[in-house]
Amino acid sequence: MNIEYALKEAMSTEGAIGVALVDYESGMALGTLGGGKGLDLEVAAAGNTEVVRAKVRTLSLLAVDDSIEDMLITLGSQYHLIRPLTKSRGSLFLYLALDRSRANLALARHLLKRVESELEV
């Protein structure tokens, strides 16, 4: 699946607010969908780049020989899911913001895993 279809698929989950495919080396979004007044996806992409970089750096310092499946940031009204793509796809991650009152976190995680497995970049 291409980037556009992958973003549409991610937005199909209940409660989705916005989604982005981000390169964490540059901090640039390769594609975004959704967002709006309450969620600037370009700013979120750049900010979450720092989160991913920090976690990757920490795992390296701790000599943890494992990979990050996903990261969850829980706000009062939102969930923010970050899913780094496998090493074969370079330094990319999917970022999905969800309305906490409408979202099913388990289904959203499952959907992002499927989108990642089918995404062709």
Rank of each mutant, 00 (worst) to 15 (best):
Y79I: 04
T32S: 02
V52M: 13
K87A: 12
D40K: 08
M28D: 06
E42S: 11
E69P: 00
G31F: 00
Q78E: 15
S26R: 03
G18W: 01
G36E: 13
V22F: 02
M71V: 10
K8T: 07
V52T: 13
E9F: 04
L85P: 07
A29V: 05
V22M: 03
A46Y: 04
A63M: 13
L21M: 10
T58A: 15
V19I: 09
R57H: 09
A46I: 02
K87D: 12
Y24L: 06
G47W: 01
V56K: 14
G76R: 10
E9V: 01
K55H: 09
G34C: 05
G27L: 03
V64D: 12
V64Q: 15
D66I: 00
D23M: 01
D65P: 00
K87L: 07
G31W: 00
K37Y: 13
V19A: 15
E14A: 10
L75H: 11
V56W: 00
E14Q: 14
V52A: 05
A63E: 15
A16M: 07
E69R: 14
T49V: 07
A29E: 04
G27I: 05
M11N: 10
G34I: 01
G76N: 14
L21Y: 09
P84R: 08
D70R: 10
M71I: 14
A46N: 03
E25F: 03
G15C: 13
M71C: 03
K37C: 02
L81V: 12
A16C: 08
S12M: 05
T74K: 09
T58Q: 11
E14C: 04
G47Y: 00
G31K: 00
A10I: 00
A16I: 06
T32W: 01
G38H: 09
L81K: 08
T13F: 02
A44Q: 12
K37R: 15
M28P: 01
L59W: 02
E25M: 04
R53E: 05
V43T: 12
L62W: 08
L62N: 08
A44G: 01
G38C: 01
S12F: 05
G38Y: 09
L75G: 15
A10F: 02
G76M: 08
A44C: 11
T32P: 02
G27P: 04
T74F: 00
G35I: 03
G36P: 06
M11H: 07
S12P: 05
V43Q: 09
L41W: 03
L41E: 06
L21P: 09
I68Q: 10
K55P: 00
I73T: 12
D40F: 03
